[in-house]
Computed example of a mutant assay.
Amino acid sequence: MNNNHAIYAQCQSLKLDGFLPILETDDFSDKTHLEFLSELLSAQCSLNTERKITRLTKQAKLKFTDVYLDELDYTLYPSLKVNQVKQLAECSWVSTNKNIIIIGATGTGKTSLACRLAQAVICNQQSVLFYRLSHLLLELVAADKEGELMKLLKKLSRIDVLIIDDWGNALMDKNERHLLFELIECREQKGSLLITSQYPVSAWHETFGNETIADSVLDRIVHNSHKICLKGESIRKVLAERGGDV
């Protein structure tokens, strides 16, 4: 390793930053060439994974960025099934293009739970993008007016998990429900949805204002979904009574 400085410079040039800490130790005389190469490659793979997760986290635009499933306090989610959460944390639902629907009253932790599940997906090196339904509709309408709808639909169809928060909070007009249908149809069998709503699925038809489109959209979502129903008191209220942070 007499050319250590030259190798170090070449690694920097090739952006093999994972190699550098190992080269700096100068403690590899007792390793075979293959052992040393394996150590270098493992370090680079770990660094690449860390960078990818950081990039995916930033791109996801989650409402809550510092919540994780392994920190979940189940006493705040009395109706949540531990085994179901563990199963969903494995992310096989993403690989099979299934959806998750989280239903619960205001304050029961729907959005927080969605973000925790999203972090598990990101740690699995799969992409996530968070929207409130109202903001998603605004973006679809704007793209349609600017002639950029197909570009946006193509972008959204590449996301592994699209989170739609606050589903059903407002009635949709004719154009909005048409655009939402286009998005759901475009993503069918290409990715998963993670939907939160204050309203039971049986009440979702009302927000569309059109039974035919409602049936078409919901048929593509509901029958291919894992369902979570959150019950109990407002988490904010419980934490306030405990004297903890919300």
Score class of each variant (00 low, 15 high):
199 Y>R: 12
100 I>E: 09
173 D>C: 02
42 S>C: 12
21 P>T: 04
75 T>I: 12
103 I>V: 05
184 I>W: 08
5 H>D: 10
214 A>Q: 01
23 L>K: 05
238 V>T: 09
2 N>K: 11
60 A>R: 04
172 M>R: 04
157 S>T: 12
48 N>P: 06
205 H>F: 13
129 L>P: 00
207 T>G: 08
80 L>S: 04
80 L>Q: 04
122 I>K: 06
71 E>L: 08
71 E>W: 14
46 S>C: 11
161 V>Y: 02
106 T>V: 14
105 A>Y: 09
24 E>A: 11
38 S>K: 13
196 T>A: 07
71 E>A: 15
80 L>P: 06
94 V>T: 10
241 E>V: 13
219 D>G: 05
164 I>P: 05
136 L>G: 01
168 G>R: 03
181 F>G: 03
100 I>G: 05
146 E>K: 15
100 I>S: 07
129 L>C: 06
114 A>F: 06
76 L>C: 12
194 L>M: 10
232 G>S: 00
104 G>Q: 00
139 E>V: 01
213 I>P: 09
183 L>P: 00
127 S>K: 07
193 L>A: 07
244 G>S: 14
25 T>Y: 08
107 G>C: 11
10 Q>H: 09
244 G>W: 15
109 G>Q: 07
194 L>G: 09
30 D>A: 11
194 L>V: 05
131 Y>R: 10
40 L>D: 00
61 K>H: 09
72 L>G: 12
80 L>N: 03
38 S>D: 14
20 L>E: 04
236 R>H: 09
216 S>R: 14
183 L>M: 09
209 G>W: 00
163 I>K: 03
119 Q>H: 15
46 S>G: 10
161 V>S: 02
200 P>D: 08
173 D>L: 11
169 N>Q: 07
220 R>D: 03
110 K>F: 06
227 K>H: 10
124 N>A: 13
45 C>I: 15
128 V>I: 04
163 I>Q: 08
140 L>A: 05
188 E>H: 04
98 K>V: 12
1 M>P: 10
158 R>A: 10
39 E>H: 06
215 D>K: 07
53 I>R: 14
9 A>W: 02
74 Y>S: 04
127 S>C: 05
58 K>R: 13
48 N>D: 13
12 Q>N: 14
45 C>V: 15
75 T>E: 15
196 T>V: 00
142 A>W: 01
235 I>H: 01
183 L>S: 06
20 L>W: 08
110 K>P: 05
168 G>D: 08
206 E>R: 14
37 L>N: 10
207 T>L: 13
154 K>S: 11
170 A>T: 12
212 T>H: 11
193 L>K: 04
70 D>L: 05
208 F>A: 03
77 Y>V: 07
49 T>G: 12
24 E>G: 02
243 G>W: 15
15 K>R: 14
58 K>D: 05
124 N>H: 08
149 L>W: 02
116 R>S: 13
18 G>W: 04
178 H>L: 08
